[in-house]
Amino acid sequence: MDDDTEAYILLLLSDSNLPTGSFVASAGLESYVTHGFFSSPTQSLQPRNKMDATIDFLRDSLKSYARSALPFVSDAHDTIRKLLLAPQDAPEQSLDSELQMITALDDLYESMTLNHVARRASKSQGVALLTLYSKGFSRPSTRRQRQTQVIEPPSTDNEFWETRAGIFVEKLKSLIRQDRTPGHLPICWGVLTACLDLSRERSQFLHSFLHVRSLLSASVRLNTIGPYAAQQLLLHSVRPLVEAEAMRSRDLHTEIGSSHSGGPIEETKHGPAVTWPLGEILAARHDLQHSRIFNS
């Protein structure tokens, strides 16, 4: 992909109006505020600066999310990229083996995401991304081809890529609709970005960025900080944060992905993990809040 095309895709994916459901998620921030963590973490009488409290939450939240979700983004991305780069005359069952791989990753993520609120939010955003791809990013012509169930031999590599990606996404969506796989956000993100031909590094970086950006939008809606302050943080604090996390997470894989690429990983060093147990508890307690404006 050339730089202009990539830049354009990045602009599209960064649009905060994308119908991905992230605007109803606060990933535990609302609960963090309700439980008094903006007032004081250490019971001192000093009220906390809200900018400081916000950036502290962003850091702890992103650190744990990156470590637990990015290995899944990587492995899902690798799987789909390999599928889309496979020779055009590759047998049809290769699609099935990639589907199996993606659902295995999905199943593993489900068993590793042990708080029900995060699971719920992740599932609703995941399937929304796939719908976004099939309804918003695919070419009308490839959709017509799928509807007629007759796949004409695509004339160019580009068309071939899009056709195969479209078929894969439809199959995955149908498995999710039948409740045969949960359709979690990091896996669907990896699938979507691979279908759009973004590199794995871009995909990880953007996923981390969007996690933080959506937390900052949530902060503005919660009125803990104002819109200008959010913008300020986004420009000056979030960038080094996201860069550091993306760099740190570059070589992370799951036990499933690693067996397919470059031999087994040492899971304790390079596997997914939750790094912020406090965030887990607060996120799970979201639904206990007497009044709340977010779904997570």
């Binding site: 708080n115 206990l288 809040q289």
Partner: peptide
Amino acid sequence: YRRLTVFKYATPPDLLWSYSAI
């Protein structure tokens, strides 16, 4: 757990717990 209702804490409580079915 379902009986709990969180209004607004001024400072974090001394003990926090969560329950999730899996």
